[in-house]
Every structure is written in C-alpha cells, then in structure tokens.
Design a binder for these strands. Structure first.
Length: 400
DNA sequence: AAGATGTCCAACCGCATTAAG
DNA sequence: TCTTAATGCGGTTGGACATCT
C-alpha cells in the first residue's frame, strides 16, 4: 500500500504519504482532468504516479466518471427521467449501471441515490414503489410453485440495510448467473445500451393517476436484495440469448397486441432520450400515442404465458439445479417474446423499411444501439414530448 | 430560534470479474 | 494454470443543507 501525506494539493514529495480521502478540491479535479486529456481514461492507478494527486485509482475513476467526464448531465432528474428510472428498475432491479446506460449523461451513482431516497420516502409513507400497472421487479405469479419452497441460496443476498434494498411479496428466485456474465453477449458491446428497452414495460396507466392507487396496490414493506435475473440467460450456453424471434408465438393475440403497444410506448420513452444524441438526421416525425389496457402489461402477459406451461413453471421439489434451469427458461422465454415484439413493432411501424431502424443480430444476440435509435428518431419534435407524457403520475403528491 | 428529521449527494468499501504476466 | 493488478459494480456511510416541529 502506497501511503501519502497530502492535504488537497500541496506537493510534499514524501516517501511515505497517506492516500487522501474525502471531497475533491478544484485543484485535484483540474489535475485529474488534465491527466485524462493527456493520457486518456483508464490506467487510473497511474494518476498518482504521473501527477501529484494522492488519490487511489478507484477514487480517480469514480471522480472522473461521476463528475468530470464530458456530457454529464447535472441537476435534478426530469419527470421523464424519473419515469424511465421507475420503469427500468421494475425490469432490472438494482442494476444501476445498466440503468445509467439508458439515461444519457446520468451516472449510476445518481440513479442509485435517487432511487434509495425514493425508496426510503415511499417506505416511510407506506406507498408502493411502482405504479399499479408496473409489476415490481421480480414479480412472479403466485401459481409458480417455487413460491412455496423453503429459502433458496438467494436468501444469502438479503441485505443488511433497509435503505438500498427492497423486497416484494413474492420471493426472489435465486440468481441465474454469475455477476457480469451478461458481458459476453450484451454489455461488452456498446450497442447493448439500448437493448434492455426491448423488455421494458410501459402502460398508459402509468401516466395517469390511478384512482384506487392507495387502496388496491400492494404495499411493500420487507427488505430483500434484488438480484439481477431479468436478462435472459442460457445456463447451458453461458450467454444471454435472443433466439428465434418468430418461434414463440404461442401467446394469445391480445397479449401480443398489448405488449406490442406497451413496448412501443416504452421505446418512445427511451428514444426521447436518444434524441439527445441525434444532432442531425431530421426527418418525418414519428410519434404515436398508443393506449394499452392496464391488465395487459408485459409481466402479466409473460408470466401468464409462463404459468401456462407446466414445463416452464411447475417446479417440483427443491432441486436447485432444476430450478435454475427452469428460471433460465423463463428468462429466455420472456426475452424471446419481448424481442419478438420489439421486432414486430419495428416492422409494423414501418421504420424497418427506410433502413434506419437496424437490428443487428449475431447468432444469438440482438443489439440496437443508441445511435441507431437516435437516427431512427429525428430530434425535431421536442414540443411533443410533453404531450406524450401525462404528468399526472409524476405530479402525484409524495410519489415522485 | 433551536433541535429533530429528512433529503441530497459525494465518496468509500468490498466483492466479482477481467486481463496481463 | 496460477497469481495479481486493474477495473467495474452495488452497497453503504456521512456530511451539508433544507424543512419541519
């Protein structure tokens, strides 16, 4: 361990010094920024070797990522961003980095802080974290037999602190994959930043205040870790898969339609963010407000489909291996369907035909990057943003 | 006015993963 | 193949400030 004795900028040059902690000074910021300008990002441990900074590499990286890097968006989250965070959290759980990838200019730390604050406030007020039409992260239908199983290894993920963890009434299935294993198929590809939108849920009910909101929606009060198991993961292949988009057609047409609409609405949301990336390429406005029945949200549809299959959802006994396998199948099913609907939407909306909407498929993987989204979505309709968003939910007192 | 409480935010810590030697 | 450093991520903490009582 290298030790420094620094206090914010003086260059002592001591052999034994203590790594500085605590708030960064302007001088440190400038030094770090200059370092990055000269050497680029990465190799953070070299900062203290090439500069007078007495900060560890991790600290430098964090400071750069959260405060100094260009294109950071400071200030409060917009209502639209807040909506997106809620939606993303309902899908991804506490995957802040992945959520941040959907919010240009925002950091995982910001999102995490926002969510934790919101979590505390809602818990204190006894309010649900999600609008009624968005099922909480990890929601599973009660007919799934593993709900009655004794604790699984996932119980080890129980968080000791209430502030940043949240549990729902339904037990949490065990994690399906090792941490970051999705890198192989998603995260390493920059295009991944948009792919989660393929399985996001959006419903018009989310944009309007539910009259029975307080009385009908479950209030969550227990705490539990939120493992990331929303990315379809193939246990056998070790990658997340998107396969055979047309192969999962055995969900009913109503769901198909509703899910299609929901996905469309959500893509609108994300694309609004992507607009920030679109400096040119202005073309015909593409924006449609669609409505979907409240009961036809993505999860209910997906799990109804899932629950209809004994093979997928009827877990017998406590065989964890079998359980993981089953859950993996569920995830693949979810993702396949959603991706299929995404593609279906792209096709039906006609965007495919103009060549701007490109979905890259590489064997089992599907990617659709922000730039593609941006180009798909001309940035000339800012005035319409508000019309798409009924602010009622956002304006609910004490909610957002 | 003062203390209590809540909110926001920056930063650190520990762990997991990856890459390099 | 193993070890180690670097990196990334999520959890947690604590200080500053705002608001409430």
């Amino acid at each position: 361990m290298i030790l420094y004795n620094k206090d914010g900028g003086s260059d002592g040059g001591e052999a034994v010094v203590v790594l500085k902690k605590g708030p960064w000074t302007a001088a440190e910021d400038e030094t770090l920024a200059a370092y990055v300008r000269e050497y680029g990002e990465g190799n953070w441990n070299a900062v203290r070797k090439k500069t007078w900074l007495a900060r560890c590499g991790k600290s430098c990286r964090l400071r750069w990522a959260n405060h100094l890097r260009p294109n950071l968006r400071k200030g409060s989250f917009s209502p639209h961003e807040e909506r997106l965070i809620i939606q993303l959290h309902s899908q991804l759980g506490n995957k802040w980095a992945r959520m941040a990838a959907q919010l240009p200019g925002r950091t995982d730390n910001e999102i995490k802080n926002y969510w934790n604050t919101r979590l505390k406030r809602f818990q204190r007020q006894g309010l649900p974290l999600y609008p009624p039409d968005i099922l909480p992260y990890n929601h599973v239908p009660q007919q799934q037999t593993y709900l009655r199983q004794p604790k699984t290894p996932s119980s080890t993920l129980l968080s000791p602190t209430p502030a940043s963890s949240f549990a729902f009434r339904t037990p949490t299935p065990p994690p399906l994959c090792p941490k970051r294993s999705y890198n192989t198929a998603f995260n390493c590809n920059p295009s991944y930043t948009s792919s989660p939108t393929a399985f996001l849920v959006s419903s018009p009910a989310f944009h309007s205040p539910p009259s029975s909101y307080h009385s009908t929606y479950p209030v969550y009060s227990t705490k539990q870790e939120l493992p990331s198991n929303q990315i379809p993961y193939s246990a056998s292949l070790g990658v997340y898969q998107v396969s055979k988009f047309s192969g999962n057609a055995n969900y009913d047409h109503n769901h198909h339609t509703a899910l299609h609409i929901s996905t469309c609405q959500l893509l609108e949301d994300v694309m609004e963010e992507a607009e920030a990336l679109a400096d040119s390429c202005r073309g015909p406005k593409r924006r449609q407000l669609m409505a979907a029945p409240e009961e036809d949200n993505f999860f209910s549809g997906t799990f109804r489909h899932c629950a209809s299959s004994d093979k997928l959802c009827s877990l017998q006994g406590n065989d964890q291996t079998a359980q993981k396998e089953e859950e993996s199948l569920q995830m693949n099913t979810m993702h396949d369907e959603d991706i299929a609907q995404l593609l279906d939407w792209g096709s039906e909306s006609g965007e495919n035909s103009n060549g701007q909407f490109s979905v890259i498929t590489t064997e089992d993987n599907l990617v659709l990057d922000n730039h593609q989204l941006a180009s798909l979505f001309p940035a000339d309709d800012d005035n319409n943003n508000n019309t798409n968003m009924n602010p009622s939910w956002d304006n609910l007192s004490g909610i957002c």
